[in-house]
């Protein structure tokens, strides 16, 4: 199969798209799926139930009982299961609320990015080049070529090649840091990947026989895209969005680490690391715990994403 031209592969994919039950069966056999989904469920539950699970208000500074005589954070103790941070706040509570920040950003930014990416990719693939005709019906006319596809995809490339951190820092300098800004920055960059993939797949599907058939019976292009082509892409979009959550969580942590993320005193994992960097030697707990939280979350979504990718990959079914 390696020698087959891409179009043939896709025709095959179109023809033998895995059915729902086969997908589930494949997933059920894959330990990555079970591990990943259990972890994701636990993380989402921790975030959702943070107000119930957290022993303390994550922003409450326990100045007497939460700091030792030197003013340093204290280690795990009955009142603070995972100890306190440099302001005497409960570390466990901050980790739980940090999951909220990370997942909120991860999910909202990804939904936005996927939407934008699908729209841009579809429009680019199916609009292609449009000719604008100005003038009388039968008389002389001016024809303007609108290279919609070229423009959209080159803009995508431009954004892909833009230094994202620089953009984020510049925006924060102008607008000031906030949760919506973090979501906007991440979504504003992440959609480009989705757009490229959707565009590439659609270029192939555009030429397939069922699209030609739909055209032949007079189905209009928007409907072809939404009802005939997009369903074939749902698997890849789901996989991409799942894996995207992992990179988004990391990116949010990076932004917060650099001080251009969600403003203080909100608990976010990236900020928890950056605030305690100086403690890596004397109290590594303060850096390791949020680092582990980031790692586990990314791992969970990656496992889940990979399992989905495997299960939905038509080549798997040969």
């Amino acid at each position: 199969m390696t020698a087959q031209p891409a179009a043939v592969v896709v025709d095959h994919e179109v023809a033998e798209y895995p059915s729902g039950s086969r997908v589930w069966r494949a997933l059920g056999r894959n330990p990555s799926f079970w591990l990943g989904s259990v972890m994701v469920v636990l993380i989402v539950a921790a975030a959702a139930l943070a107000p119930v699970l957290a022993p303390h208000d994550p922003d409450q500074q326990f100045r007497r009982e939460g700091l030792d005589a030197h003013g340093d954070p204290i280690g795990p103790s009955p009142g603070f299961p995972l100890g306190t941070d440099l302001l005497g706040r409960d570390e466990l509570s901050r980790l739980l609320y940090g999951a909220r920040s990370s997942l909120t950003v991860g999910i909202v930014a990804n939904v936005l990015a996927t939407l934008i990416g699908v729209i841009v990719g579809s429009v680019a693939a199916f609009a292609g080049r449009r000719v604008l005709r100005i003038g009388r019906r039968n008389g002389p006319a001016i024809r303007i070529v609108l290279p919609i596809e070229t423009v959209l995809m080159r803009v995508t490339d431009a954004i892909l090649s833009f230094p994202v951190l620089l953009l984020a820092i510049a925006l924060v300098a102008i607008v000031g840091p906030s949760l919506p800004l973090v979501v906007a920055v991440i979504a504003g960059v992440l959609w480009t990947g989705v757009a490229r993939i959707v565009h590439g797949r659609m270029l192939v599907l555009r030429e397939s026989e069922f699209v030609t058939a739909a055209r032949a019976v007079g189905v209009r292009t928007p409907r072809i895209v939404t009802h005939h082509v997009l369903p074939h892409l749902s698997s890849i979009i789901v996989v991409y969005a799942t894996l995207g959550i992992a990179s988004t969580v990391l990116f949010e942590a990076t932004l917060s680490f650099l001080g251009v993320g969600i403003p203080l005193p909100a608990a976010t994992w990236g900020q928890m690391i950056s605030q305690h960097l100086g403690y890596y030697d004397t109290d590594p707990r303060l850096v390791v715990l949020p680092g582990l939280a980031i790692m586990v979350t990314i791992l969970a979504f990656n496992l889940l994403g990979d399992a989905l990718a495997d299960a939905l990959d038509p080549h798997h079914w040969r």
Binding site: H70, D72, L86, L277, Y280, D281, T282
Partner: peptide, 10 residues
């Protein structure tokens, strides 16, 4: 820095 302050001063 805060992280090593106590260690070094004590």
């Amino acid at each position: 820095p805060a992280g090593s302050f106590t260690q070094i001063t004590t």
